[in-house]
Design a protein around this nucleic acid. Sequence first.
DNA 1: AATAAAATTTAGACATGTCTAAATATATAT
DNA 2: ATATATATTTAGACATGTCTAAATTTTATT
Lengths: 218, 218
Amino acid sequence: MITLSEENYLKAIYHLERQMGGAVSTNAIADKMETKASSVTDMVKKLADKDYIIYKKYQGVSLTAKGNKTAANVVRKHRLWEVFLVEKLNFSWDEVHDVAEQLEHIKSPKLINELDVFLEFPTHDPHGDPIPDKDGNISKLDKISLSKVALNDLCTCVGVIDSSAEFLKYLDKHKIALGTQIKVIEKESFDESMTIVIHNSELNISKTVANNIYVKTH
Amino acid sequence: MITLSEENYLKAIYHLERQMGGAVSTNAIADKMETKASSVTDMVKKLADKDYIIYKKYQGVSLTAKGNKTAANVVRKHRLWEVFLVEKLNFSWDEVHDVAEQLEHIKSPKLINELDVFLEFPTHDPHGDPIPDKDGNISKLDKISLSKVALNDLCTCVGVIDSSAEFLKYLDKHKIALGTQIKVIEKESFDESMTIVIHNSELNISKTVANNIYVKTH
DNA sequence: AATAAAATTTAGACATGTCTAAATATATAT
DNA sequence: ATATATATTTAGACATGTCTAAATTTTATT
């Protein structure tokens, strides 16, 4: 039986592994978990004993297949609950995190399957983060609206929805074209505008603009 | 901040207090919680320190106003989640308990308010148990269908829905009349039939019969 | 390559919630 | 009213997950 604390550590390692790449350091985990490095060392030993991670002293950790699946499942639950909260219970997308953080630990395969059905199989959470499937796979290949891209994710412009002259002129003026790399560095809750980085310079774009740009995430 | 364990103890005491009446003994709590009496003593001291209960050595415990409200709120959450699981996620009424047992500990006033709205303010859970309101009050006074009465609850027949001659003849044959005391002692999951005690003898009645009898709980 | 700085681990402690076994208090029976 | 049985509490132990402070290893600097 996995504990709540173990699940939280696995989730943190999961996020760090795809954010960094390569082995995840003790300090990186301690930062993310807002705890002390010594506590991380203790927990990391337990997780290695249970075959969730590979741990070599002083060399950081990486998830095993089992660990990855377990972590992805926690993330899946977190994001499905976020969709539920926003779509059914009138939460705004910046209010959901703390509650989803609790709900993600509820253990019941039937619950999460049925929730998935009830929500009609959403692919992304309200922040634009993709929802892993039952096996922990996430669809990285579909094009999505720029407005659905998660904070700090890098993506590439692959199309537009509004193809009016005005809109394309706007894109041209700001040097956004097919193939342009875009990184989302800030999202405003009150008007859903976002700050992006293109060609190493920052640009603030409105919700409308973001809605009309298609991207692929990396 | 109240812990998960403290909430579970308060809930157990809450149920025992209305099941028995008067102070609740250490052993009764230990039985219900499936733990040892010594563990109960330890916890009971903590709950008394935090003003959730009144505890006198060797004399059992009783909930304070604060403890009652806190416990009733846990029960409220448990029962609202049960309604959600049955009505929205295709759970049957005998599958919901373990999951609701986890969901009842999620902390978010907004969540439970919105869930209440979403479910359109249900008054009873799928087992027929009443749902306490925000202040911990439960409506004991409404008439409900016998099929909604909780296991081991005592109630009084106050009316019928189907008033056909056949049905009334059936009731007459089994000596069920207005004012008859009925205790539900068993509920079958597969056909929703139930066993009741009337005039000190047992009787098994079908779902249809139970649906058509109105009762008041005590 | 030696040394300083940073990262990581170990050792020992603490809080929570649990347990067993022993001690003590209450209830029951004669 | 005294002995016996039952209920309850205490004392001491343990597991989990955390912490601080000290020791150790790795990395960076000169």
